[in-house]
Write a protein that binds this DNA or RNA. Structure first.
Lengths: 239, 239
DNA sequence: GAACATTTGTACGTATGTATA
DNA sequence: CTATACATACGTACAAATGTT
């Protein structure tokens, strides 16, 4: 299928990639030693190293000298959210508190269905919450999850949902967020959102729309967040 | 200096890196063949290949199969500016026209001096310009250049400055922009900027501050651009 | 078009070093 | 101290891409 007289190290990269996607090796887990894999696939050590190096550079694997090679977990440090000034008065970075406003099962509208690759009307879990810093609202979030994947979540009372959802998705629903795509734009705040965020009507807000995927690339969460643009600063290096 | 029983391939990376920074190999130029370099530095081919691979992954070099290895030129395709909807009515991407409003020599204020690593009061070339799409202003830019590096620019009449400045910096002043750092934030438009951009007072604008560096990492241009936030959309992938 | 030299790309096999449990 | 696993380094051979003759 993917053949076409491709280099061996690339074919092996695909084999290993499949084993990760199939869940044979789960995020955080140790994979076989490179020497063992080289034997197993009948190639030289250097060739196997090159296949592994590929997957490392693509972010699927992580090597630890003297220990082994591991399936990587997602790193949301580079998320745009990092660039909201989520800092306490003393200047430390801080996870904002979370206040659930609503949690219910709803039928997917056209937009959610498109993003989550479902049909309009399929059941979603819809969460609305405020994130607060020192008891002041800084962000309003709407989160949509396919009900079929997150059923166990409904047995949890809304008050006991943690501020960081992703580790909890994993623990409770066996769903691992491995990557995400975010889009950022600016809009004038609506009356409703101005009220929630405690800002003046017409002030600019940053809108971040995020689609989160599992390790196989299937969409598992669609999220829309709004925060006062004043609190936002983003930086990037170009070369 | 940088030694400490570091791997050979890393020491060689540093040697090659120095030769690039010294300008012995200039951006766009072909460097020696890897076999020649391996001989020259007295290491095996594989070791030299690894040193070169390092510099490739760091963005300093570029390999072309069957041709050779080249010093890389900067790629501004990934710039935040790309995400302004600089498109014509027919939907094609387009370089906006440029209209110079002002060009003069000024003493550096504290902010410009800090960014360009000069002293307050050192002479700068200051350019103000509008960028237009279909004759409508979309962005207002203030550009600051150290006079000592860009002296030849003063002999050019402002009207004949091209829309894309970076290739022209190179041709006219032998200054190559190799990397840049950008910061993005949102502000309410000032009366002056609202007038220039043709938007309502108080509308949000995206402010992009850019510091451009040459290949040795020396700052050579400081730029501040403002555009209507409405026209802006930015996306990012997280893994 | 064909033959050729040059240059990078792939692959093998081996030996030794270094970090970790 | 020992076993394991990744890291570095060497040297060789041939394949594939490109530009020139």
């Amino acid at each position: 299928m993917t053949d076409a007289r491709l280099p061996r190290y690339y074919l092996i990269r695909d084999e290993l990639h499949k084993r990760i996607l199939n869940g044979e090796w789960k995020p955080g887990e140790l994979i076989d030693a490179e020497s063992a894999l080289a034997d197993r696939y009948g190639v030289a050590l250097g060739t196997m190293r090159k296949a592994i190096a590929q997957l490392v550079s693509e972010g699927f694997l992580e090597r630890r000298h003297g220990v082994g090679t591991f399936v990587r977990r997602a790193n949301f440090e580079s998320s745009l959210f990092r660039f909201f000034r989520f800092t306490s008065a003393s200047g430390e970075r801080v996870v904002p508190e979370s206040q659930i406003l609503d949690l219910r099962v709803v039928p997917a509208n056209e937009e959610c269905a498109r993003h989550l690759e479902l049909s309009t009307g399929d059941e979603l879990i819809a969460i609305k919450r405020l994130r607060l810093l020192e008891h002041k609202p800084v962000q309003f979030e709407e989160i949509y999850l396919p009900k079929t994947l997150f059923e166990p979540l409904l047995e949890t009372p809304a008050e006991s949902l943690p501020a960081l959802l992703y580790p909890w998705y994993e623990e409770c629903c066996d769903q691992v967020v491995a990557s995400a795509h975010e889009e950022l734009s600016v809009e004038k705040v609506s009356v409703e959102h101005a009220h929630l965020l405690g800002i003046e009507t017409g002030d600019p807000v940053i809108l971040i729309e995020r689609l989160a995927h599992d390790i196989a690339g299937r969409p598992i969460e669609w999220r829309r967040s709004r925060g006062a643009a004043e609190r936002f600063r983003y930086h990037i290096d170009i070369r």
